[in-house]
Write a protein that binds this DNA or RNA. Structure first.
Length: 596
DNA sequence: CACGAGGTATCAGCCAAGCC
DNA sequence: GGCTTGGCTGATACCTCGTG
């Protein structure tokens, strides 16, 4: 164990409830293993440890690590793991009685407690919560901790010992905080939820930490919009015509209060949703007339929606991708019922299709954003053709579009892009990827003999999943939050990536909203240009300085008691908040400050 | 009039459980 | 065993309303 890891574990060794906060990639799992070992040694037969991971992927990783570790150290220690995906469940009760260490996904524990298999948390002597920043709202973690606080605050519990709580996280500051006080509030809330008075970070061994955790380079690229784009004009024309048609059926302007809807914007999509919702409850006199109008309006708006989508795709990818998207939709319409209205609608598209095809196949310049992306990739692979990249995008449609763009580009098709997306949702038509197919993509990307050099991903791959070989991360119009960025960084640098990691981001500021977007990514970049460990440890050198933190400690104190009172109120118990109240503020003002 | 807080809708995702 | 469903999460964008 490294010195800084010992430092992180120190308060836990003293038996205190602790939140351990350290950057990804520094070996928090090693700390967790050491804590278990120490705990088993001290408690002897009375020890019963539960380790929880929020996701099945992570659960599998950690479970295997625990098994391997203790197999080597002390084969007498019994370990078992339970997660939801295993079909035939062993009884939680049996598992608990026959093992010293139990690895779980938290829902299992919640279920077992609800079902009475586990009478109380006092059965355990140590709870470890991985990714403990999830302890909010109705997350299973919070349900467990609510029950813990319940037990702690009820008098009957006096005779029994509640388990020690240890939380692990890369960053306490998850949540939508915008400023210092919200961040503090958030942290206090978390500490209260975890009944923890200590946030353990690395104070003294920062140099050693720096030598293990690598900070990547970051670059931002600004790209201009296309100067002229006939595609947009043509689509606008079609949309205007469809709106005109719709107006002959019903006064659609009276249906929605949403104004200033521009073609190709999210607001337009909202307007469509609104109109569709309203037209279901039109309340016309004639029932038949009503269903006819409703049906027609639905058809019109559905087409408008697709054209709107196409404009959005056109914005970030090739015109061809947008056109393909429309073609698929039109073809679907034709294959289905295809009544009179729809025939007229598809005729609009067919009328322009020749021109549009012409635009997408030749004359028109491709999207400048893609030019920039192509340039970056070409440069990178010229310098090092062993590079493995992950390209983050916001939507699935864009992931598909970029995949086909790379495959059809002569200078880039050697990259053999893979796509990693999530499961999908009941409302969306797109079928997502199952857990196994994701695993397959990930494995083939990780293996070196495979030809795939780039992985296009939505936000699935950003948290907790470990892609050690990756040394180039591209964010294509993708502004993640701080936590995500930190974890992305951690993931790249894990196991010492072959090359220096470069973290690049393609954005462009043309309209105002986009320049705001840009400044947001800047502030993100600034906040991570100081690694989290630094901003937390060297609080004196940060904007939120020591004196400030002292003067703020009063208000922090108040907030803590508030948040604790809240969680007490939630758990509907009589308050004995004084016992929990005071120490939290101290440890927070000492050890945590988040720069913004 | 500008700004921020609060609410809503949509996107993205996760897990467990039930169905075929 | 794979697929779907239901309940949960957070992030973002937008609207509305209150306040200075």
């Amino acid at each position: 164990m490294r010195e800084y890891q010992r430092e992180l574990a120190e308060p836990v060794f003293q038996g205190k409830n602790t939140v351990i906060c350290a950057p990804t990639g520094c070996g928090k799992t090693v700390v967790a293993l050491a804590i278990c070992e120490h705990h088993l040694k001290v408690k002897g037969k009375g020890a019963k440890v539960v380790f929880m991971a929020t996701k099945v992927d992570v659960f599998n990783q950690q479970y295997k690590l625990f098994q391997d570790h203790f197999q080597e150290k002390d084969p007498d220690i019994r370990i078992d793991g339970l997660c939801g995906n295993q079909g035939d469940q062993l009884s939680m009760k049996v598992v608990m009685e026959n093992n010293d260490i139990i690895v779980l996904t938290p829902q299992i524990l919640v279920n077992a407690m609800a079902g009475g298999e586990i009478p109380s948390l006092s059965c355990f002597s140590l709870l470890i919560l991985d990714e403990c920043h999830n302890t909010t709202g109705k997350h299973p973690y919070n349900i467990i901790m609510t029950s813990y606080l319940d037990a702690k605050l009820s008098k009957e519990q006096n005779g029994q010992h509640l388990p020690q709580i240890v939380g692990l996280t890369a960053s306490v500051g998850i949540g939508s905080f915008k400023n210092q006080s919200e961040a503090e509030n958030n942290i206090c809330q978390l500490c209260a939820s975890l009944d923890s008075r200590i946030i353990s970070t690395i104070h003294t061994n920062t140099d050693e930490l720096q030598s293990y955790v690598h900070t990547p380079d970051k670059e931002f690229f600004l790209v201009e919009k296309r100067h002229t784009d006939p595609f947009i004009r043509i689509i606008h024309d079609i949309m205007a015509k469809i709106e005109g048609l719709a107006k002959t059926v019903y006064n659609i302007e009276s249906l929605s209060a949403i104004e200033n809807r521009d073609y190709g914007s999210q607001k337009y999509e909202q307007w469509i949703v609104d109109v569709q919702k309203k037209c279901r409850v039109l309340q016309l006199k004639d029932q038949e007339e009503e269903s006819r109008v409703c049906r027609a309006l639905y058809n019109y708006t559905e087409h408008l929606r697709k054209y709107n989508d196409a404009l959005i795709i056109n914005e970030d990818a090739r015109t061809k991708d947008a056109l393909d998207y429309l073609s698929v939709f039109i073809q679907q319409v034709k294959n289905a019922g295809h009544d009179e209205t729809e025939q007229r609608l598809t005729a609009y598209f067919d009328g322009q299709q020749g021109v549009l095809r012409g635009l997408s196949s030749g004359g028109q310049k491709e999207n400048p954003k893609l030019d920039m992306l192509q340039y970056i990739l070409e440069e990178q692979y010229r310098q090092n053709d062993e590079t493995k990249s992950v390209l983050f995008v916001r939507t699935r449609a864009l992931a598909d579009a970029l995949k086909s763009w790379i495959e059809e580009s002569d200078s880039l098709k050697f990259l053999k892009p893979g796509v990693l997306i999530g499961r999908g949702h009941k409302s969306s038509q797109l079928t997502g990827m199952t857990l196994n197919s994701k695993k397959g993509v990930l494995d083939s990307f990780k293996s070196f003999d495979n030809q795939s050099k780039i992985l296009i991903a939505t936000s699935v791959a950003d948290e907790g999943i470990d892609i050690p070989q990756c040394n180039l991360v591209l964010m294509y119009e993708y502004v993640g939050n701080v936590v995500k960025m930190v974890q992305v960084r951690g993931n790249q640098s894990m196991h010492q990536s072959i090359n220096q990691s470069i973290n690049q981001s393609i954005n462009y500021s043309a309209s105002q909203s986009q320049s705001i977007n840009q400044s947001a990514s800047h502030s993100v970049s600034q906040s991570i240009s100081q690694p989290v460990s630094q901003s937390i440890n060297q609080s004196a050198s940060q904007p939120f300085s020591q004196s400030a933190s002292q003067s703020a400690s009063q208000s922090v104190n108040q907030r803590v008691s508030q948040s604790i009172n809240q969680s007490i109120n939630q758990s509907a118990s009589q308050s004995t908040s004084q016992s929990v109240n005071q120490p939290v503020s101290q440890s927070i003002s000492q050890s945590v400050s988040v720069s913004w």
